Amino acid sequence: MIIKRKNILAAASVAAMVVTLGSQAQAQQRYTVGSLAEGTTPFIVNTAWANAINKYMPGHKVTVSAVGAATKHAILVAQGKMDFSMYAPIQYRLLYKQIGPYKKITNGPELTEKISQLFSYPIGQYHVVVYESSGIKSFADIKGKKVFLGPPAGVATRNTKLIIDAMTGYQPGKDFVQVKMGWGAAAQAFQDRKIDVWITVTTSPSPSVSQLTLSNKIRLLSLDESKFDHPSWKKYISQPGRNMATIDPGAYGPNMVNTEPVLVTGAVVGLAVRSDMDEDLVYNMMRAFWDHQEDAHAMASFMAKTINLENAVESLAHPVHPGALRFYKEKGIKLNIMKLSK
């Protein structure tokens, strides 16, 4: 009888533990942040955001999802099916006007109010990468080649089409083969030499590009300033958040064969959140991230120049989440919020 009683007490103790653990699991709040592929600037920033919340806000768990295009992630956030995503100023304008990748949307203005910005940051530059052995030395040489422009329904693809048209007059499907796949699959396909030209948007030096140069000689294609009067270039560069930069020929070590600075273009993007997320919760998340931004800086050599409060408010566009506004107010940071509906 004593043995049976001990067994009963032990079983009860285990059951109580299971119930307790189950309750803790149920109490943990889970969130998803949509991201571009591993190795890109948004992936590193979004991972840093997730790490900060997971570390400094017990009971809250953020998971990074690098599946699909940023244009789709924004719709999922607006629909309440995703909690955070990368969000660029141009996405707001395209969604509001229901054009480009959002041309099939019928309630664009309504959806834009359901996505709120938290902070902005420079996504980096468009790296147009080729292997030295390909013989491709300029945009003109991509004729007849297999080219990855970006995910089929993404804003990046819209932009790279404009850039290539301005530089060469080439059109996908007519002058070159457009490779249609996601960011991660394209990076792998380029490593496997199944495509000739790989375009990725990332800060220099990029981890994914640096990995390539460990055993391969590569070239970055430079923009031609003489083509900047082209209508497609003017259409591209007039979008909000565009910028110009140069990449030093030594940025990726001796296996980068460029001998002169590479003229490139880039953009500013941001992290967005569901507009209906609780103000106090978002405020605490902002504090968890920004009060420990040194954790983010440790993730990559370029992160200190990418993640800082100066960049955070550089390209904020309406609407900005009330929790973020409260955070910036407490920090004494003045905001100049863009209105992009026009």
Score class of each variant (00 low, 15 high):
K4L: 01
L9K: 11
A12C: 15
A15W: 10
L21C: 14
L21T: 12
S23D: 00
S23K: 08
Q24L: 15
Q24A: 11
Q24S: 11
Q26K: 07
Q29L: 13
R30T: 08
V33P: 01
V33F: 09
S35Y: 00
L36M: 11
L36S: 13
L36N: 07
E38G: 07
G39E: 01
N46M: 09
P58R: 02
V62L: 06
T63S: 10
V64F: 06
V67F: 15
T71Q: 03
H73T: 07
L76I: 09
Q79F: 13
G80T: 10
D83E: 09
F84D: 01
F84Y: 15
P89F: 10
P89M: 12
Y92R: 08
R93T: 15
L95V: 08
K97Y: 08
K97D: 13
Q98Y: 12
Q98C: 14
I99F: 08
P101S: 13
Y102K: 03
K103S: 15
K103V: 14
I105G: 09
T112A: 07
K114P: 12
L118M: 12
I123T: 13
G124R: 02
I136E: 07
F139D: 03
I142C: 06
F148Y: 12
A156Q: 14
N159W: 05
T160R: 00
L162P: 04
I163R: 01
Q171R: 15
Q171H: 15
Q171M: 10
P172R: 03
K174Q: 14
K180A: 12
A185S: 14
Q188K: 15
A189I: 04
K194T: 01
V197N: 02
T200C: 05
S208H: 06
V209N: 05
S210M: 05
L214R: 00
K217N: 03
I218G: 01
L220D: 03
L221N: 05
D229S: 14
W233N: 04
W233G: 14
K234M: 11
S238K: 09
S238L: 12
G241D: 06
N243L: 10
D248I: 02
Y252V: 13
Y252T: 14
P254E: 15
V257F: 09
T259C: 04
E260R: 13
V262I: 14
G266S: 03
A267G: 11
V269W: 10
G270R: 00
A272L: 11
M277N: 02
D278T: 08
E279H: 10
D280K: 13
M286T: 02
M286W: 03
A288L: 15
W290I: 06
Q293F: 10
E294M: 01
A296Y: 06
I307S: 05
L309N: 05
E310N: 03
V313L: 00
E314H: 15
S315H: 15
P319H: 03
R326T: 01
K329M: 08
E330H: 05
S341H: 07
K342M: 14
